[in-house]
Design a protein around this nucleic acid. Structure first.
Lengths: 245, 245
DNA sequence: CGGGGTTTTGACATGGGTCAAGGAACGTGG
DNA sequence: CCACGTTCCTTGACCCATGTCAAAACCCCG
């Protein structure tokens, strides 16, 4: 079990990865660190020297505003490589925080650059992930722009379920997920009160249950329907089989 | 005047571009086409063979939903290279449309790939733009998530002004901009009625005037203040001088 | 068994949506 | 150069989804 395993699995879900490429990835770093929930891993304005690979737990990118409001921009789950390419930027325009206790692999930027220059195909595979991340952002823009509270939560849990299943963490409709309703609200752009009420409605409608740090998808087809969920944007190959419908 | 000039200017705003690299970019294509407002340049599900460089006019990426709702995900102005890297994706998860009459340079994907493999530094420069696009998306997620209607419009016009000024299209606070309030609304995730009322309020507050296809920034400092606009995310070099404050 | 964070609930406020209609701007054809 | 249609902008009246404020209940952990 190498800390990069889930990342490689995510890559393999889209494209072939050779053993040589896998070895290159495994050689990137062995610097695994534990971070307690609520810890900032990078802060706005910094020029970080490393990228971060989530091994377990949940982390996020977020921006704080002067009046105390916070928007979570992106949620990261195991296998996600955060800021794979931050090294091309001058300074970070946002912060990164772990939303649950987390194990994270720290990878110096130059190691990534080296691996990509050694193997040009690997470079393209890695860039591919960055492009998929952009597609995930685009979908979330839609959620925030036109989806109602219910639709938005449905879209979130649909995407989460697919993403976790692609890295092999789950294979069904019931799984642990350590995220507070309050953090979820900051991602969804709604108040924690409204999130709570909406989750209550969805539970009673037998769509979805999220409590005690556990997600239970009660009716997957209905949930997809509510969200108008079409996971083309995750760029899985045509015919890629999810362990569920 | 080469069709790629504004793109090159945008690159140069961030990093040095050698003459050789500029020549490579200029050789990408000379296939300039005119598109009438409202024309789709690519549609969801397609596997397009070319990237698009906006020469003049405004285009956008958008997603349509079954019930007729539309979310515009990204606005593109002259100098923007759309889907520079779409070729790594299986299929488009969104559509592309011109929102005003437009001249667009069509560039075959393989030309981009070739140019990038000939000059590795050029590849990184080009990727850099993609990373900046992602940062622009992140900022817009914040707009949709936590900014009010007024703040959101303010943020939009702040960003627009900086972006247009970076490619040298404008050098002041009054410039033509052909976009309907309705399209603007689909971007801001609000109804055209509310956009209209909010623009009216901003006009009367002497912040901003947008009418007759013309933008007039009436009070730049106040507008930035309202939007809490900090353009770190556009990744301009420290000390990059805008032609205004 | 006590205390902090989290979830849940209630009462009420409001930003923005909906529906509907009139008015201004503009292109086109006569 | 005018008449007409079309599209876009503007305004009014009303409504609802979500926000705000506040407090109670729950739950985990020390």
């Amino acid at each position: 079990m190498n800390p990069t395993d889930k990342f490689v699995q995510k890559l393999r879900a889209r494209r072939p990865v050779t053993d040589r490429q896998q070895t290159l990835i495994e050689g990137l770093s062995d610097d695994v660190r534990f971070h307690k929930r609520g810890t900032d891993l990078a802060e706005t304005g910094e020029q970080p020297g490393e990228s971060l690979l989530v091994i377990d737990g949940v982390s996020c990118r977020y921006k704080d505003f002067a009046d105390g409001r916070r928007q979570i921009i992106e949620m990261n789950v195991p296998g996600d490589f955060i800021d794979l390419h931050a090294y091309v930027l001058n300074r970070l325009d946002h912060s990164i925080m772990v939303l649950s206790d987390c194990h994270v692999l720290h990878v110096p930027h130059e190691k990534i650059r080296d691996a990509m220059s050694v193997d040009v195909d690997l470079a393209e595979i890695i860039w591919h992930q960055t492009i998929i991340d952009a597609a995930i952002h685009r979908e979330w823009v839609c959620s925030l722009g036109i989806r109602s509270a219910t639709e938005r939560l449905a879209a979130f849990f649909c995407e989460l379920t697919v993403r976790l299943s692609v890295v092999g963490i789950i294979d069904g409709f019931r799984y642990p997920f350590k995220l507070s309703q309050s953090d979820l609200s900051d991602f969804c752009g709604m108040t924690h009160v409204h999130t709570n009420r909406t989750l209550g409605v969805m539970d009673r409608a037998n769509l979805l249950r999220f409590r005690h740090e556990e997600v239970e998808i009660l009716d997957w087809p209905a949930l997809k329907e509510v969200a108008a969920f079409d996971y083309t944007y995750l760029d899985l190959p045509d015919g890629y089989a999810l362990p569920f419908g």
